[in-house]
Design a protein around this nucleic acid. Structure first.
Length: 283
DNA sequence: ATGTGTTCCTGTCCGC
DNA sequence: TGCGGACAGGAACACA
């Protein structure tokens, strides 16, 4: 899926056509995403105005005028495509209906937002705006990595004594919310920490050093418009370009790019996910 | 309480 | 060109 930078990029792409606009009509083509869509979702969305478009971790939150919030998760392959609106200098006409177009939001004024998700690991739900933080999908997740609650003391305390691999710990959304496989690999390479190392056995000073690195990697990725892999596009269909700056992710067998390092990027599988790292400079 | 493996689903790519 | 298997950005869930 899109990780935090991709979700933030999508949110920024959707904001100009959704914020302040009314959802004139909602169309549900398939209600069976990861979980069934909420009852009467189309009717509950139709006529509602989008008051604000927010992001929490990898969730996009559309606060509606009727006191409800639409919670959107893109899963692994979810996309939000915008058409029928002026985007920059270009007008995007509505494309022909495509396979896996599961939900369509027609905004007043003609813009259309299409949720397309081949693998259907994505999800949507509606809940009272005041209860979003207590929603079962959001209530247990940790602090935003770009927010103040995520800091050196917090991370050191959370990882202390933990036997699980540092890679797995940083992927645990309860510890920090928003990192995914790509960015954890990139962060650990920059921090020169081996992904397989037990979280509790990383020196406190090095754990503390992860905090600014995490912020930096995410900020850089957001500035680049995210990373475009197989399924991900920005909301306007454009490609992000952060993937061109990957130092280890998907670079198995390629030379390590750390200055002065002559190692070769290696791939291992941890908890069913690929980890990429340089055995020479990450310990 | 912690940690690990499986599972959901479709598409793509690679070797034969 | 087809076929089988590995793999893909997530994360809930069942189990040890």
């Amino acid at each position: 899926m899109p990780e935090l930078p991709e979700v933030e990029t999508v949110r920024r792409g959707l904001a100009p056509v959704m914020e302040g606009a009314m959802i004139a009509r909602a169309t549900v083509n398939r209600p069976d995403l990861r979980w069934p869509l909420p009852d009467n979702m189309a009717a509950r969305l139709a006529g509602a105005r989008v008051v604000a478009l927010r992001r929490r971790s990898k969730y996009i939150l559309a606060d509606l005028s009727r006191g409800e919030t639409l919670i959107i998760h893109l899963g692994m392959s979810g996309r939000m495509l915008v058409s029928g609106a002026m985007l920059g200098a270009f007008h995007h006409d509505h494309p022909a209906p495509a396979k896996h177009d599961h939900v369509i939001l027609d905004m007043e004024g003609g813009a259309r937002v299409t949720f397309n998700d081949a693998r259907r690991f994505g999800a949507m739900d509606l809940c009272a705006t005041g209860a979003v933080d207590a929603h079962w999908l959001l209530r247990d997740i940790g602090p935003e990595p770009l927010g103040n609650a995520f800091n050196e003391d917090y991370l050191v305390a959370r990882l202390k004594g933990r036997g699980m691999a540092i890679k797995s710990a940083l992927l645990d959304q309860r510890i920090v919310a928003g990192l995914g496989n790509i960015y954890v690999c990139e962060v650990l390479h920059r921090a020169r920490i081996r992904p397989t190392r037990a979280a509790g056995r990383v020196a406190a000073q090095r754990v503390a050093g992860l905090v600014p690195i995490i912020r930096q990697v995410l900020d850089e990725a957001i500035d680049a418009g995210g990373s475009s892999l197989r399924d991900y596009r920005q909301a306007d269909g454009e490609l992000g370009y952060f993937q061109h700056t990957f130092r280890v992710y998907d670079r198995e067998g390629a030379p390590c790019v750390a200055p002065g390092c002559e190692g070769t990027v290696q791939r291992v599988v941890q908890a069913g996910r690929s980890s990429f790292f340089c055995p020479r400079c990450q310990s």
